[in-house]
Write a protein that binds this DNA or RNA. Sequence first.
DNA 1: TAGTGAGTAGACAGAACGGTCTGCTACCTT
DNA 2: AAGGTAGCAGACCGTTCTGTCTACTCACTA
Lengths: 204, 204
Amino acid sequence: MPASGATTRSSAKRDALLDTAEGLFARHGYRAVGIDTVLAEAGVAKMTLYKHFRSKEELIAAVLERRSNAIAAGLAKRIAAAPEDPGTRLLAVFDWLEQAVRSPQFHGCLFIKAASEYPAAEDLPRQAAEAFKGGCRDLLEGLCRDLAVADPEGLARQLQLLFEGALVVAFLQRTPLAGADARRAAEALLAWAPRAGEATGEPR
Amino acid sequence: MPASGATTRSSAKRDALLDTAEGLFARHGYRAVGIDTVLAEAGVAKMTLYKHFRSKEELIAAVLERRSNAIAAGLAKRIAAAPEDPGTRLLAVFDWLEQAVRSPQFHGCLFIKAASEYPAAEDLPRQAAEAFKGGCRDLLEGLCRDLAVADPEGLARQLQLLFEGALVVAFLQRTPLAGADARRAAEALLAWAPRAGEATGEPR
DNA sequence: TAGTGAGTAGACAGAACGGTCTGCTACCTT
DNA sequence: AAGGTAGCAGACCGTTCTGTCTACTCACTA
């Protein structure tokens, strides 16, 4: 065995499993895809799967965990590449969104679907989804705080509605238009949002 | 047999099946609930189910169809009860939304979940979901057209993002806050939207 | 009163499910 | 050369799934 000692992390087979599972789950759903299908497409033996994951639910959770990290990295990169202006940085999130829903690999949000299929509070996929979406809200909240608006938390929650809505509409209507629509709406909300210190209520 | 001659429409057992199925599907998901579970809770024999519906997928489609009609009726009633003012009538949709996600019976949007679990274009549940969400967009579009804005279709699409986003966030975050947030954001988009005849771009 | 249609219970088929187990190979390190 | 480890194939278990079938019971009505 090379370098690493942990038995569970970073194996070629494990990665193949995660890759294949992610693709199949994204296209067909979680419960619709059996373990045997994943194994056949990944070219991996059943015992190998159960050496790396205790159950199908744990495999799903691992897929979501990995995807969550990848998305966080992609978003962070895009934000870092944006100019200093806080408004532009915030809109970079929606640029990322637009590109994400336009990709041919996009088949709806893995996390929303996971929570739909495993809705109980004790289900691992639901917990992963909740954590991820909570992280998205926190990210938006942080960006909004740099924005000198009166109610950054409220604005962040509104922006998240656009974000999630675009994911759903792009999936359901099969139109990538939703990405651009969300961006424009986000600009509008930003423009309309009361600045800090201003009186609440209709700003001009 | 009383009055009606059709064998498929309006039977007490059929309604019991739809009621039970809707509740179970909403709480646990479609594939997670077997027909035997539905039958047991509804107190109906298996053959009766298959006399009314050709398959489980058709049962799901019938549930969605009925729910779609109920929602359309609820929305129409709320809009009809609103004052003449087009803006207020449009916001009535978000009033309905707020009340819907606050209800204890709310467990996420049945249609989004259906499309998640049966994502293929030929699947009946997905078709029902697409039709329903298309109808929602058309409804919003009609209301936006009464509004004398420059781009009613675009505004309607933006509002739908808020609508779907609120459904998702309310489900995932288990917070009814999303309803009120969506309504406030909708007001903002309305206020910000360029009026017909005005030059496009930043108003004022 | 005879017949018809809706509904029932429950057995059944056939497949797919998640998960376990045994034994085997191949490789790498000591 | 020995031993440990990762992975393999594939049989296997019990359960659950959708959907079919038979044989029976009501209630109503012509």
